[in-house]
Design a protein around this nucleic acid. Structure first.
Lengths: 202, 202, 202, 202
DNA sequence: CGGTAAGCGAGACGGTACGTCGCGTCTTAAG
DNA sequence: CTTAAGACGCGACGTACCGTCTCGCTTACCG
């Protein structure tokens, strides 16, 4: 009688087809980007009928959103003993994710559709930024405990500023080395205001 | 010495048609956004043949880029006597430009094409950010003269961080009030690190 | 034994759409002629997508060729008891087909494309002239049996000359009455050579 | 003071340009045919502006018509002493004109536009057929004088039938040899009816 | 165990927009 | 006032995707 376990009649949807279309979506997103990617191409690469995609997703945006959502990397909370090193580790981690082809296209897509399709940014916020924001709070708590920064500092605020800086650098400093350098300098400045932390990063 | 004034033969391109298509482009960009905007629609509204558009621009992106480039508002360098108020004025000014329908669409479009079409970000950098970056340097120079901030502070670095923060807020805080509030708080934090400037903004 | 009935996968092509586009093609061909007829107009009148046309035909010429090929009128072999009357009946029949708007446009199109697109004349020959050529042979056989004409007369030769005369008259005597009169006189001359048939036709 | 010689003011029209455009027209007509030939291409090959063409001709059809009209070969009236040989000579002459690439395209174009543009056939009739029709009358008069044919035979009628036969053969017997053979046989039949002329041609 | 209902790959469907090309006209400066 | 050059508004071209709709065929359940 439990309606959760009620089975619908007929052939169940194929998990294999679903997996294939998500895989193909991510590949093509990394290769050609969101706009240049056609549903036909995804279906063809996945060896799947177009209707099978549309049965699950109402639009390309939904499909891609779901595909991205499922690629959740592990969030590692660095704990090196100093805020400086922890931040360094966070930058490295962010660089790895954000500077990959898929990462770039993902961010580009999310930003571009932010105005026309706001629930898209919502997903990114909830699934990607939020967890990292909380992880970052842990890092700052530890720094507070070590008296590296003041107890009244708002971790969310610092994280948001940090994210904005990284995003901006992604657009205007697309080269990995200059991105890292640019982010490092800006965060150094930012954390000077937040702390007694005024030694140079790196 | 005459090669500057050398005229190409044949009928010159119509400045009037050009103006009409740029006008129509901006109108439609604000009304329906970049993706939903067709070249046919632009041509029809401008009373212009499609070929006349393609003679000037190779793609919709180029057309829109140029249209936007030509709507450059005056850059006002605030000079209120205190850095705090100057920054406040800059935020207000940025809000006005960035939060309008056209402004949002503009930023969305430029950012979205940044990865697929990097010279596009280049234009935005050169024509839009660069001048404001230099204007901002003037504001900081005055603050240095008033000893509100240290003489060794890099104005470009502060501007970049500021821009990143504004961009991030545009995506995740699209509401005008929360955008302004969010930006204000982040800049307050940022400038604490840069100065003896630790009074609350506003 | 099953390869004849092998089904291709996917949705089969719609016979209804096909019929509609052929119908629209013939209508427009009669109304505005081959050159002035656009694929868009055909598609619109048929209530069919352009791609649905191009899936079946590589060009406007192919489409029109097929449309015409399918309008096969009944071939009636007259048998009045005298060659003179039979020929009269054939002229009337040819007049009806050839002098209609569709008939004129058809002939014009076939002739015009004869050199640039020879397989087009081929279709006309095979599907239209050939059967009538054979029907005409029957008429002549009967006349031979009645000793109206010599037994050694080549029916194909007479038919070809007749057709040429009709074609020429179609171009330079477009008025139905003068076309008929012109054809009658020329055939009268032609058949004098072929027979004891020297009474005036009509 | 003769007003025929009155000079209009300004630069006179360039005969050279006119010649060049006619030349280019004929070349392209022979090479690619009427439909595939663009005014732009003619202008480019002639080194002439498009407006210079349109100043003289209202349409591509008019231009081509005029170009063709000016290539009128001399009409030679054969006089070999026998109708049989004269007709043979006429067939040879017609073959040379009609079977060349330019000749084919010309006929195709004229016929094709005959229905959509009847004054075009009119030009062809007046400028091309009429003179030959009259020349042919001379040939027949001589044959009548030699008592090869009856005095009551209508030369126009014979010429029209002959032309129709040649036209038909042009479409369905495009090969030069079979064209000539086909025409020869049909004319042989035709002239049997018109004469005591019943020896085989050739 | 056989019926039934939904899912499947394939691909055709009516549309919309694309970017190109040719039309016949218009606008330059040069002659 | 004509010329060569070439831009103009227009509209058809043939292509590519969109999201929907059949096809004939599994595939799993339920009675």
């Amino acid at each position: 009688m439990n309606d959760i376990h009620k089975k619908s009649p007929g052939r169940p949807r194929s998990a294999q087809s679903h997996q294939a279309m998500l895989q193909a979506t991510l590949e093509l997103l990394g290769e050609v980007g969101f706009d240049a990617m056609s549903i036909d191409a995804i279906a063809a690469r996945a060896g799947v009928g177009k209707a099978t995609i549309y049965r699950r997703y109402a639009s390309k945006a939904e499909l891609v959103a779901d595909a991205i959502e499922r690629v959740r990397e592990e969030i590692v909370i660095p704990d090196t003993g100093s805020l400086k090193s922890d931040i360094d580790a966070l930058i490295q981690s962010a660089a790895q994710i954000t500077l990959s082809p898929l990462g770039r296209q993902t961010v580009a897509m999310i930003i571009s559709s932010a105005s026309s399709n706001p629930e898209f940014a919502e997903i990114y916020w909830t699934k990607y930024l939020q967890p990292r924001r909380q992880a970052f709070a842990v890092v700052l708590e530890r720094a507070k405990a070590r008296h590296e920064i003041g107890a009244d500092l708002d971790p969310g605020l610092v994280f948001d500023a940090m994210s904005g800086i990284m995003l901006y650098a992604l657009i205007f400093q697309p080269n990995p080395e200059s991105w890292t350098e640019s982010v490092r300098r800006a965060l150094n400045l930012l954390l000077k205001g937040a702390s007694s932390f005024d030694a140079e990063l790196h």
